[in-house]
């Protein structure tokens, strides 16, 4: 599946940012000569990002780097609208499908700064979990929730606590059922 992403860069057009040569270089003092005191307190040693970042200015000229070879887009790949295209390399597992996929496509209409983006994705995740159970059943697999939740380990290492939790769960469920049945009788 070839897409327009293969032709687009990994960044927004260069004319929206300062070209690299404007950000540094020997001509800066000359360019700012009209500003009294420009740069007199500049201290190259004051670099709080070091050593986490070995500053070389590349993030200022960052729009001019050579992208790696682009991975072909063979599955539906959503991308943040804060970038114009997919990254050069990307994961291809679990492309969006079903209702959760529709929700994810909707979420990616919003930028990463919007709650609508993230909360929609969280809702999609919960829907996806239900879809997973339905898909399993369609394929003749009944999900073994006890095994999937690792409760065999709970039985091994916290048997007393597990029995207690089950007993509490049963008691609460029984109490709720009794309460509901009592209300139904009164209504009749």
């Amino acid at each position: 599946m070839e897409s327009k992403n293969q032709q687009t860069p990994g960044h927004w057009p260069v004319d929206k940012a300062e070209p690299a040569e404007k950000q540094g270089g020997d001509d800066m003092a000359a360019r700012f000569a009209h500003i009294k005191g420009w740069g007199i307190d500049a201290d190259a040693e004051n670099e709080p990002t070091y050593p986490m970042k070995h500053w070389n200015g590349d993030d200022r000229k960052g729009l001019n780097y050579d992208r790696p070879e682009l991975q072909p887009v063979t599955v539906e790949k959503l991308h943040s609208i804060e970038r114009p295209s997919v990254s050069a390399v990307f994961g291809t597992t679990c492309p969006p499908t079903g209702v959760s996929g529709a929700l994810r496509r909707h979420a990616f209409k919003y930028s990463e700064g919007k709650w609508a983006h993230w909360l929609t994705l969280l809702v999609a995740d919960r829907v996806n979990a239900v879809e997973g159970i339905i898909d399993d059943i369609k394929q003749g697999i009944f999900p073994n929730i006890i095994a999937e939740r690792g409760w065999t380990a709970e039985w091994k290492y916290n048997r007393k606590g597990m029995v207690k939790n089950i007993a509490i769960g049963v008691a609460v469920t029984a109490a709720v059922l009794m309460l509901l049945s009592g209300r139904n009788k009164k209504a009749h």
């Binding site: 990994g10 970042k53 590349d58 960052g62 943040s80 990254s87 390399v89 990307f90 990463e112």
Partner: peptide, 15 residues
């Protein structure tokens, strides 16, 4: 700049 945890070409879904 050795910010290998902040690569711009490995994640499409989030910047």
């Amino acid at each position: 700049q050795q910010l290998y945890g902040n690569c711009h070409e490995s994640n499409s879904e989030a910047t």
